[in-house]
Amino acid sequence: MTTKTIKASAAGTSFLPAVFAVVLGLGIITLTGHVQASALHDAAHDVRHATGFPCH
């Protein structure tokens, strides 16, 4: 019983790090690639063009 519970908990929680990393990663990509705030846009301008993000 004890073993079962612990195994279930490990399986249940171990997708959380992956989900967290995906959300964090996509958040960073949105910030560097898509947000149109002018300071961000100007700083990331050349990178957005070179990396194929829609820029202007």
Binding site: P17, A18, V19, F20, A21, V22, L24, G25, L26, G27, I28, I29, L31, T32, G33, A43, A44, D46, V47, A50, T51
Partner: peptide, 20 residues
């Protein structure tokens, strides 16, 4: 700035890749 933002962008990609 281009270097910093390229590193940031690929770090975002890297996190998604490592998660998958």
């Amino acid at each position: 700035l281009s270097i910093i933002f390229t590193m940031l962008t690929y770090t975002g990609y890297g996190l998604v890749l490592a998660a998958l």
